[in-house]
């Protein structure tokens, strides 16, 4: 059995390394002078100069960020309301509502995206950055809800009752007692909600106005031209740096929440 354990260990480390290989290769060859994908012919920063000077990339990146922030705020607020209502009140149809909120997680995104597009067009609503936000919130509420509710279920309502006994009204008890206890869950939910929106391609692609780009849409436009634009390799370095920052924050604040 010792041998099996050893093999398992080697295997695990192997896979952990392998999942990084494609990205590392992409980054290494962003510094390559020639267009070769296997031979490193010489060091250059040319792709980076091109990337920095590329206005479209930064515009798309900016769009991804602000849309992500708005989506996160709205969906986390809705999720807090929902999680609080479900865990604190008894009412008819509670289990049905609890499972309805989870439906957006299960439904394939391409279907969500096209149904929303059909809906918007039939109502005569013009596509805009706000239609993208509407779409993202619809799935992010569910993700944020799962995380916040998990935190809510594990917390003893007696603290809140104690605050009420000591004279706080419900709102005050909520903001002074419940919210601080929920904070780690809210932060974890915000991170997940932001990442889901920031990385979303399909729903954005269907509900965006013509010419409007987020970072994933920009990457799609570059990559679907069949070539290998080395700017994308340079962009990978930037995006990986961001991912490492996210990973760091996530490790500091959201331990134990994997979604």
């Amino acid at each position: 059995m010792k041998l099996v354990d050893k093999l398992l260990k080697i295997y695990t480390f192997g896979i952990l390394g392998l999942i990084y290989v494609p990205i590392v290769v992409l980054i290494v060859f962003s510094f390559n002078e020639s267009k070769s994908k296997v031979v490193f012919t010489g060091f250059t920063l040319e792709n980076y100069y091109r990337l920095v000077g590329n206005f479209r990339v930064w515009e798309s990146f900016y769009n991804s960020i602000w849309i992500g922030v708005v989506v996160t705020v709205v969906s986390v607020l809705l999720a807090i309301l929902m999680a609080y209502g479900i865990t604190r009140y008894e009412f008819r149809g509670k289990t049905i509502i609890d499972s309805l909120v989870l439906v957006p997680i299960i439904i394939p995104e391409i279907v969500e995206a096209l149904t929303l597009l059909v809906f918007l067009v039939i109502l005569g609503i013009d596509l805009s950055p706000y239609t993208i936000i509407i779409g993202h919130v619809a799935f992010d509420v569910s993700f944020a809800y799962v995380v916040i509710k998990a935190r809510m279920v594990g917390y003893d309502p007696q603290y809140e009752e104690a605050a009420r006994t000591l004279g706080a009204d419900e709102l005050r008890a909520f903001t002074k007692v419940t919210l601080p206890i929920l904070a780690p869950g809210i932060i974890a939910a915000s991170l997940i909600a932001f990442l889901e929106s920031y990385d979303d391609f399909i729903k954005t692609f269907f509900t965006r106005p013509a010419g409007f780009m987020t970072l994933p849409v920009y990457i799609w436009n570059m990559a679907s031209r069949r070539g290998f634009p080395l700017d994308l390799n340079a962009l990978a370095t930037f995006v990986v740096a961001l991912a490492l920052i996210f990973a760091y924050i996530r490790n500091r604040v959201g331990k134990g929440v994997y979604l």
């Binding site: 695990t12 952990l16 999942i19 990084y20 290989v21 494609p22 990205i23 290769v25 992409l26 060859f29 070769s36 994908k37 296997v38 990442l195 990385d199 391609f201 970072l215 994933p216 990457i219 799609w220 990559a223 290998f228 994308l232 390799n233 962009l235 990978a236 995006v239 990986v240 961001l242 991912a243 490492l244 996210f246 990973a247 996530r250 490790n251 994997y258």
Partner: peptide
């Protein structure tokens, strides 16, 4: 360990697909 598995999945999905295309190419790694 979980964080190590997780981190690549915070890189844009499309960029990861592009990275795979880069190494799967005929003249690739």
């Amino acid at each position: 360990a979980v964080l190590i598995i997780f981190t690549p999945f915070w890189i844009n999905f499309l960029l990861r697909v592009y990275a795979m295309r880069f190494i799967l190419h005929e003249a690739g790694m």
